[in-house]
Nucleic acid binder design. Structure first.
Length: 557
RNA sequence: UGACCGAUGGUGUAACUGGCAACACGUCUGAUUUUGGUUCAGAAGAGUCUAGGUUCGACCCCUAGUCGGUCAACCA
């Protein structure tokens, strides 16, 4: 599957470990989401990496929910995360929860207390923070740091029993308040939270912190390679300290640079804000970079996996151009999407020499890229058609291959027509184009000998199916909204959604199912949205086609 | 004024681990085309952050500097 490129640094590490027989050549990775939001495209890089690494070395991957903060976590998120991973095409060996390990973690904590390596601190959050120092100044020891082991044991037990108020005490590791690494300055292991947990209910009122849960969970599961993003790098010494002092399975942590995409935001906090403040319709709004949003937008699992492969893995900060994501989905959809004709901005065209009331059924291939052309369908042709308003120009330039007074053009799957005249209303808006067709130029039986430069899509008016089409554009109008001036929401693209209330589709589009994927010829890739109703389909634009003409036209003006 | 990490065309990732930089996206030509799509052929674009050093030879090793990122939540 991998290209001719060399292996990434993680593949090299794992390959070496396997070769040297570390852990008997066993490879076990894990994907550890916190169920406090939906998965996004950045997670898909991590998913592909973790599952891909295991697959590549005959290993397995666990799905483990890092659910140690009951206040933000919900079952809804658990379900969506599982759905998204499966949709991407991965299956986990085990479904685990950090909360499953609460009893074990508690015992680990007790053993550290017994070794004199952890203590209960009665200081307030503010006091702890002020004693912590800063990155450039060392911290100070807590006055509770040297409590006896027995007192610590007693206090920790009472913390668990719920004898103390939330925030009144914490359990801390006794390491080094002067460490240049802030995370080693007696990090908090447990805090009191009288909160209901989505899985353990009210059984616990003390919860372990990330640093005293993640590495231990890895170790309990005997994870061989614990892959995470760069910001956890400073946690690694602590990750290793706990494992060493606890004398448990030595999982190893490796960090890589997270995925960043331009013109969007990628933090769950920001995405949650967009949802809560109704800037989008939900986590699965097609404008969202969430996996569910991309799915609804029309992205395929293959395209996303391919994208993850192409962006590579390294330890360098990066910003990927959304253009690459778009390339990946076009590449996939070009091969599989059924071609259909839909006019988004209808302009009436009358073929004056075509008999009134006559209807011809014309065969049309479903996909020129497919082996058997994807089979055929028949589309009705008649005297009155809808064409795209932008396909007619009153005063066309030399490079314009479409319709204009005196110009000839091919109607896709039908005839060559010649434009004779057009009509305008009092505002100067073109209301109708009049053409004559050339009977001998019928598609597939063309004996006219005429060659035209342009081919246009069209829809027969009597049989046209009105539909709603949602045109999505980039969510933000600046490349990096998160670091742009002001609030990131100030930079939302006001035109990130254009709803076409009444586009005109060919009849075959009347009955489709949510998720069905099409290429509306010359307009882009679209998919049926779940908001469709009987007789009134709704389509989402996944991505436009590459548009060379737009480039040319843009240059001229 | 700290510690840690990073730096290769516009973007991202490579370079057989020291033998004068490749692949993909993008860009630009041209061909083909009943989608200004696809496909095909080709081109431009970096001399590898800077300065020293080691070496016959450095993107790769060493030193110093510059720039960027991360770290001071009872979040993960």
């Amino acid at each position: 599957m991998s290209t001719e490129k060399g292996p990434n640094f993680l593949e090299e590490i794992v390959a070496e470990d396997v070769k040297s027989g570390k852990h008997g050549g066993r490879v076990l990775t894990r994907f550890p989401p916190e169920p406090n939001g939906y998965l996004h495209i950045g997670h898909s890089k991590s998913i592909c990496l973790n599952f891909g690494l295991a697959e590549q070395f005959n290993g397995k991957t666990n799905l483990r929910f890092d659910d140690t903060n009951p206040e933000t976590e919900e079952t809804e998120y658990v379900e969506s995360i599982k759905e998204d991973i499966r949709w991407l095409g991965f299956e986990w060996a085990n479904e685990f929860y950090a909360s499953d390990y609460f009893p074990q973690l508690y015992d680990f904590a007790v053993s550290l207390i017994k070794k004199g390596l952890a203590y209960v601190d009665d200081s307030s959050a503010d006091e702890i923070a002020s004693m912590k120092g800063t990155p450039t100044e060392p911290g100070r020891n807590s006055p509770f740091r040297d409590r006896s082991i027995d007192e610590n044991l007693n206090l920790f037990d009472r913390m668990r029993k719920g004898e103390f108020e939330e925030g009144s005490r914490v359990l801390r590791a006794k390491i080094d308040m002067a460490s240049p690494n802030m995370h080693m300055r007696d990090p908090i292991m447990y805090r009191i939270k009288h909160a209901h947990h989505h899985r353990t209910g009210d059984k616990w009122c003390i919860y372990p912190m990330y640093d005293f849960a993640h590495g231990q969970s890895d170790s309990i599961e005997k994870i061989t390679h614990s892959v995470c993003t760069l910001e956890f790098e400073v946690h690694r010494p602590l990750y290793e300290w706990f494992i060493e002092k606890l004398e448990i399975f030595p999982s190893k942590q490796y960090e890589f640079a997270r995925l960043n995409l331009n013109y969007t935001v990628m933090s769950k906090r920001k995405l949650l804000q967009l949802v809560n403040e109704k800037h989008v319709s939900g986590w699965d709004d097609p404008r969202m970079p969430t996996i569910s949003g991309l799915r609804r937008r029309g992205y395929t699992p293959a395209s996303i996996r391919n994208f993850a492969e192409r962006v590579g893995v390294a330890r360098r900060e990066n910003i990927i151009d959304v253009g690459l994501l778009e390339f990946c989905i076009r590449e996939d959809l070009n091969k599989i999407a059924l071609r259909r004709m839909v006019v988004l901005d209808p302009l009436k065209l009358v073929i004056t020499n075509y008999p009134e009331g006559k209807t011809e059924m014309l065969p049309a291939e479903n996909n020129p890229e497919a082996e058997d052309k994807g089979g055929e369908r028949e589309i009705p042709f008649s005297r009155e058609l809808w064409i795209e308003r932008e396909d007619f120009m009153e005063n066309p330039g030399k490079k314009y291959f479409r319709l204009g007074p005196g110009l000839k053009v091919r109607l896709k799957h039908a005839y060559i027509i010649s434009c004779d005249s057009f009509e305008k209303d009092e505002h100067g808006k073109v209301t109708q184009v009049n053409c004559t067709y050339i009977p001998e130029s019928k598609s597939g039986h063309d004996t006219s000998g005429i060659n035209v430069k342009g081919t246009m899509h069209w829809v027969s008016i009597p049989q046209a199916v009105p539909c709603e089409v949602r045109l999505y554009d980039r969510l933000f109008r600046v490349e990096d909204p998160a670091s742009a001036e002001g609030d990131f929401k100030d930079h939302l693209n006001p035109e990130n959604l254009t709803v076409v209330k009444q586009a005109m589709a060919e009849p075959s589009l009347l009955n489709t199912s949510a998720g069905d994927k099409f290429q509306f010829i010359r307009k882009g890739y679209f998919c049926t949205d779940k908001d469709s109703s009987e007789g009134k389909p709704v389509f989402n634009r996944t991505v436009t086609l590459k548009d060379t003409w737009a480039k040319i036209a843009g240059k001229d003006s």
